[in-house]
Simulated scan of single mutants.
Amino acid sequence: MGRFYKKAIVTALLVSALSTTAFAASKDNTDYENIPPEAVIVTDFNSDIFKSSAFSNYDNEHQQYRLSKYDIINVSIVGFNDSLNKSNTMGRYGYTSSAINGSVNYNSTLAQTGFNDIVIGPDGYAQLPYAGSVKLAGLTVDEAKDLLTMKLGRYLKIPSMSVIVTSYGPRKVQVLGEVEKPGIIELAADDMNVLAAVTSAGWANKYGRIKKIQVIRIIDGVMYVKEANLKDYIEKHDIRQNIELKDGDILYIPRSNKIDLQDDIMPWISFYGLYKNITD
């Protein structure tokens, strides 16, 4: 009788565990996880909010680059000697004391040096002698040149000015959920897409669902969400799925309900061995 009860109990536990695993595997997570109800779900491809990286690159061929935070630029006043350039090289967010304390006449300084290594700060502003704090983030290079010409033109007549981007600042996105290295990652300006972000985060782990990646973007306090299917991008070459990212975007890789052989099946095989030992 004792043997019969042992067999019944172990059998019930085994059936219950396997049923639970099978049910989890059969579920289809079609709903967006951890997204507030007020979020705007974007379903269109190449919308005003989200664009495919491929489409965006095509569009950018017809558009000028717009300056961003942490970009570094040089401003040169064409036609003037720049022998004193080193004395007024810009610092990380400002400029050296020689330009600030007026140790040289401002006309001579502007005419002979230009400004090198101007960093656009995290607020989008750059600090220049005489021009002061100038917001450059979001402007094209030509727009920045026109603005600086106007600002500096109050102190001398500028025949011609050039603005050159010498370094493009890194962009940061968050990759969360079922990836090997979740957290904040930096991407180069020309690597701002879902594939590059997930790759930089060590790729999805064995439970990560790359068919249902959520790209989250906040614009003027409104959350927008677009789903990306990297599996279709890789296997079916659906270029629409590799969405272009913006600085500050969030990627969430949800958990899949698939059964993993090592973690989900092997323990129950071991359990079955125990079952046989008890019941035999």
Rank of each mutant, 00 (worst) to 15 (best):
G94D: 15
F80W: 11
D31Q: 15
A111H: 12
S52A: 10
V40F: 05
N57V: 08
N88G: 05
F115H: 04
G79Q: 08
Y95H: 06
K69H: 05
A39C: 15
S47V: 08
N74Y: 13
T113G: 09
S87D: 09
N107C: 03
E38G: 09
E61W: 05
D71S: 06
S56Q: 14
Y106W: 08
I100E: 12
Y70S: 15
S47P: 04
N81S: 15
A17P: 02
A12H: 01
D71E: 02
D59P: 01
L110V: 04
N34M: 14
Y65C: 00
G91R: 09
S56P: 00
G114D: 10
N81V: 12
L110W: 07
P36S: 14
S52I: 08
Q64S: 15
T96I: 02
S83W: 06
G121C: 02
S47H: 05
I9D: 04
Y93A: 09
V40G: 02
L84Q: 06
L14W: 04
K27E: 14
V10K: 03
D31H: 15
F55I: 06
Y106K: 05
I100K: 14
L84T: 03
G102D: 03
D44W: 01
N85E: 11
G121H: 09
N60E: 12
I49A: 03
T43S: 11
L13K: 01
T96S: 10
S68R: 13
A54S: 11
S47N: 03
A54P: 00
T21L: 15
N107K: 14
Y95N: 03
S26Y: 06
N88F: 05
R92M: 08
V10E: 02
A17L: 14
S56K: 09
R92F: 09
D117A: 08
F55S: 14
V15W: 06
A111F: 13
I118S: 04
A22E: 01
G114Q: 10
T96L: 13
L13A: 10
G102P: 03
V78K: 09
D117F: 13
S68I: 00
P37C: 05
D28Y: 11
I9W: 00
E33D: 12
F80D: 05
F45E: 12
A25P: 01
E33H: 12
K51P: 04
T109Q: 09
S76W: 10
V40T: 13
S76Q: 10
D82P: 00
V40S: 07
S53G: 10
K51W: 06
N107W: 04
T89H: 09
A111T: 10
N60A: 11
L110R: 03
V40A: 05
T11W: 08
T113L: 00
T20E: 13
N85Y: 02
S16M: 13
G102Q: 04
V42E: 08
D28A: 10
I9S: 04
S53T: 07
T89A: 13
A25E: 01
V42K: 04
S83N: 10
S16E: 03
N34A: 15
D28E: 14
D59V: 14
P36R: 08
L14R: 00
K69T: 13
I35N: 07
